[in-house]
């Protein structure tokens, strides 16, 4: 899950609706913590009623958000395990040095620090991107000849410890 996928307004609405006081979202190394101030202004009747409903639905929501949080934490741990190679500039991503040549690397390949992983072409200059860690390529995050943005993840490498 990425922050860009999260509709904060919807999140606030749901927190209010289900009276969730606090939620933590994690994306890679960044985390957002949202806390809501709740004022105890209910009458005893409605408070009991609300609490009951809250216990029912809130519990469900909490369970949901716990599962969500667990997923997020798992993903964060996976990303921490992997070294991410990002695009250093905007351009076109190429997996091979020339159209008829083999790809520099494939998923599962062992790479050493300094090995060339890909080319990012910008303004007709071919920029070779090297890995600065040794490890195994776990994922190639973009397709060949795809346009990439600055700092877009290109490779996930499981580093050798």
């Amino acid at each position: 899950m990425k922050f860009k996928d999260v509709d904060l307004n919807e999140l606030f609405r749901m927190m209010e609706e289900h009276d969730v006081a606090e939620i933590v979202l994690k994306d890679g190394k960044t985390a957002i913590e949202v806390k809501r101030n709740r004022e105890p202004t209910h009458t005893s009747d409605s408070a009991d009623k609300t609490d009951a409903v809250q216990a029912e639905t809130g519990g469900a929501v909490e369970g949901e958000s716990n599962r969500e949080s667990n997923t997020l934490i798992t993903e964060q741990k996976n990303n921490e395990k992997y070294h991410i190679v990002e695009a250093p500039l905007v351009g076109t991503f190429y997996l091979s040095p020339a159209p008829d040549e083999e790809a520099f690397v494939e998923v599962g390949d062992q790479v050493n620090s300094g090995d060339v992983l890909c080319i990012v072409e910008a303004m007709k200059s071919m920029n070779e991107i090297q890995t600065d860690v040794s490890g195994v390529i776990k994922e190639i995050c973009v397709d060949n000849a795809e346009l990439v943005e600055f700092e877009q993840p290109l490779f996930k490498i499981e580093t050798n410890v």
Binding site: S125, M126, N127, E128, I129, Q130
Partner: peptide
């Protein structure tokens, strides 16, 4: 025609 091929190191190109 011009063909530029750069290698990007951590601190220089």
């Amino acid at each position: 025609g011009i063909l530029i091929e750069n290698t990007m190191f951590k601190e220089k190109v």
